[in-house]
Write a protein that binds this DNA or RNA. Structure first.
Lengths: 203, 203, 203, 203
DNA sequence: CATGAATGAGGCTTCATTCAT
DNA sequence: AATGAATGAAGCCTCATTCAT
């Protein structure tokens, strides 16, 4: 990796280390989403990441743990995309709309992340603990919804339930889009956001 | 199959055969949902179903095929639960409401079926072909939604998309309920159904 | 099997029994020669012979024994073809020639028998005992060679060795012919017979 | 490979690797020839070769491929023994004699190689491709025979057929010798070589 | 006699993980 | 830190044989 010379003068040792760790995580994400967990052996991850099999175990104690860490990274990544809270000067509905699109855009343009989350949302490999630990990345959305309820803009409903319902809608539409069973037009997206809004607002 | 009760007690041979096949399917469903696909060996299925390992292969050519057939059965089962279309004399909204509750009740009281569908909705093990083959069980719902749109009661939206969105909402709430992260009251259910209705109806 | 009515008025029961036994042996021969022993399951033999799996075990105690009996039958069959000793009035060389062609013709027109013998000549499944038991079918040839040696027509050489060498030559040419690596003309056959003769006769 | 003795004792790593591969091949040869293919499980090969079951799969992708590679090695080994062409100053007949004895000696003193070739000459496990690939090791013999024909010393006959016939004779006599059905004296060998010679030479 | 569902030992192979270098 | 050969438990599946009908 001689072409890394113009990166900031950080510990090149650490840099290399991080490169390898990242290569492993990226390769894992790619392979898991396309092949599934049980069809992706560590040896293949090693090969395609360009490291030795044993090397993976310097960074991750086990395959299961590799998944946990990857899950945490993906969740954090999406959380970051969501957190781009629009200006507070906009109307509440507009901010709702933008949150919704942020998440939609992120998942649509990061298919691997999307499928990985779909896969591991139901996998026994990801433990409740991992799920809980990642919840904090979505606090900004929960807060936003709680604020809407408090202001009397949204229905009286648990913000967690509300967030889950909206999350479900976004993922539903992306699933249809990716699976290709349905061609999704901009109008359809707008309809669904409007539907989401109608679902949660005070009528 | 409510018309099975008065069939004569025919062919105990066939009965035994069906019992074994059923025992395998039931055991598989139970184990897969609690342990996941790759953590459930055929040997365990055999043991807990009370048959020899080889016996499974009289009924199912491979583990993968066992999953396909189980998927088809579960889908058919849920389709049957849904198909109990309420009287046509009710208002459209009431019928919508009942469809919703039919599915909700079915999944809530058949947790294994629910988790199995969640698992295999995203598994590479279930092929697009299997999914397509099972779609026909839901035709009655699609028809119902299409009818609502045509009558000007529901928004102009693809009935498939609409069905997927509602399906997503029902599953979201059950997920929360089962995971126990959220205590779901009857009022919450009513709120969500109302939300679903608000999402799709002409405002 | 209603079309068996005009066979001699033998015990039709026995007839049916023999039919089944024969069907099993014939099917086994066909499958073994084309697939090999370990690639031919009893279940396939049963299916293609038109009997139930268990039925085979009424006629043959085990797969191994089925092979032994088939081996004995094939050996006897070829022995019978050989035994058509030409008239004693011919010259010795002519009789030699005819023995040679009898065997050649038999094997060439009964490819399955040929391959079966090739296969089981070296298989640990056929025991020395089986081989010994079948040797008697070739006594007429051994006697013929011994006679030639005694008369001073053939070299002083063990008749068994001599028979084995000739047998080897016939099988070699058929192997080349069947494998198709070499197109065998009548002249080549004649050459090889002449070679065989030159090999054993007093020069 | 007589020029191996003076190579330096390089790379003990590579040495160890080759040792393991060799141990597997040697053990396989020994077990297959005494038990047959389908009676020799990979687990036994591993145990008797002193490696773990999985280790075999580092060197050979499958049992079938292990056989192919072993076949190629044995063929090459025998080809090397044959290739020790006697001096060109000897008479043609003497050179013929020595070729014959080279092969005879090799097979007689390498019984396992002999049986392995006998076994796999007729096994569906060895594919035509493997056979073809190994043919080149025998080119020197074919050339020698072709030369004899061209010089008018041997009959007009396809050199391939001629080689196959001689090969058959050598194997026939070794089979008798090993099977122990016949005690083979030096005189008998000489008789058979003479017979071979009489078979192919111009009379 | 015949059937064929059922058995379960055992075969081939995979793969997460270790460890000597 | 990195390597990758080696391990061996465990998985899926086959198949000769049995036995209740």
């Amino acid at each position: 990796m001689p072409n890394k010379r113009n990166t900031p003068p950080r510990d090149p040792q650490l840099q290399a280390v991080q490169d390898k760790r990242k290569a492993i995580l990226d390769t894992t994400l790619r392979l898991i989403t396309s092949q599934g967990y049980h069809a992706t052996p560590m040896s293949q991850i090693a090969r395609e990441a360009g490291v030795a099999a044993g090397t993976i175990y310097h960074y991750f104690p086990s395959k299961e743990d590799l998944m946990s860490q990857l899950y945490a990274e993906v969740k954090a990544r999406m959380g970051a995309a969501l957190a781009e809270d629009p200006s507070h000067e906009m109307s509440y509905k507009m901010r709702f709309w933008i949150f919704w699109r942020n998440m939609y855009n992120y998942l649509k343009h990061n298919e691997n992340d999307f499928w990985f989350l779909e896969l591991f949302a139901v996998s026994p490999i990801i433990k409740a603990e991992d799920v809980r630990a990642s919840a904090r990345h979505y606090q900004s959305v929960i807060d936003f919804l709680a604020f809407g309820i408090q202001k009397g803009i949204l229905r009286e409903m648990s913000p967690n339930l509300m967030a889950a319902l909206i999350d479900g809608q976004i993922k539903t539409i992306i699933r249809l889009e990716i699976a290709g069973h349905e061609t999704i037009t901009d109008k359809m997206i707008a309809d669904v956001i409007q539907g989401s809004w109608d679902m949660v607002r005070i009528n």
